[in-house]
Amino acid sequence: MISVQTNDFDLGHEYQMLRQDADGDGAIVTFTGLVRDFNNSGSVSMIRLEHYPGMTEKSLMNICSDARKRWELGQIRLIHRVGFIGANEQIVFVGVSSKHRKSAFEAAEFIMDYLKTNAPIWKQEGTATGMKWVESKQSDQTAASRWQK
């Protein structure tokens, strides 16, 4: 299940939901992304995430179905927040269950790598000198491209 939402999420609740539905699975891997309170040029007090409603959901669902083609997975839970989010708050959650840990670890990483380079979401950071758009990073492209090998 995927959610694009302004509200925060409860890690414990999401884990319990995954566990409840992960019949017969031997592993649950979760990842939570947080807002860093600094960037290259100083401190960041908050961020604003803009997205393309409709395409974001479609893109996240495609990423999850791509992951299912590569690994035998049980449950996938993906949450991405949008709008204004304060420093140190949660932005993104990925939870994956599977029979064995390796596929759950790999699938969670694959989903994050693809999300960062494919989902139509853009980040602005609130700094001392105003709101600044974050530039895309080559390291994110490199991380996503390794899955194409």
């Binding site: 992304g33 995430l49 997205h51 960062k116 380079t117 989902a119 853009w122 974050v134 530039e135 895309s136």
Partner: peptide, 10 residues
């Protein structure tokens, strides 16, 4: 149709 800069979510 939509035009946009490289994405930076996550």
């Amino acid at each position: 149709v939509a035009f946009f800069p490289p994405v930076t979510g996550g």
